[in-house]
C-alpha cells in the first residue's frame, strides 16, 4: 500500500499568527503555538505532524506565503 505523507515548514519569524491555516487543513494538523516569535505573533506549527498529507491547502490560504510543503509516497508493506 502506498500512503501519501507530507510535512510543512513554517517560516516562524515571518508568520503573523493570523490563524487562517489551521481551519484550512483537512487533517487537523495545525495549531497556533503558545510561544510567540520575535514580533509577538503566535506562529503556526504542526501540532499533529503525523497526519499531514502534504495537500498544500495551508500554503494556499497563507497571506504571507511563509509555508513550504513537502510530500512523499510512503511505501508501507
Amino acid at each position: 500500500m502506498a500512503k501519501v505523507k507530507g510535512t510543512i515548514v513554517v517560516d516562524i519569524e515571518r508568520c503573523k499568527g493570523c490563524g487562517l491555516c489551521p481551519p484550512a487543513c483537512p487533517s487537523d494538523v495545525l495549531s497556533l503555538a503558545r510561544e510567540v516569535n520575535a514580533k509577538g505573533y503566535h506562529y503556526a506549527y504542526m501540532a499533529n505532524p503525523d497526519a499531514c498529507t502534504g495537500c498544500i491547502n495551508c500554503a494556499l490560504v497563507c497571506p504571507d506565503a511563509v509555508i513550504t510543503v513537502y510530500r512523499v509516497k510512503n511505501k508501507v508493506n
Binding site: 507530507g6 515548514v9 499531514c52 498544500i56 500554503a59 494556499l60 513550504t68 510543503v69 513537502y70 510530500r71
Partner: peptide, 13 residues
C-alpha cells in the same frame, strides 16, 4: 518529517 522535508519532495514554496 525531517526525511520528507527535502528538495526532491518539494510541492509548494
Amino acid at each position: 518529517n525531517k526525511d520528507i522535508a527535502r528538495e526532491e519532495n518539494l510541492v509548494f514554496k
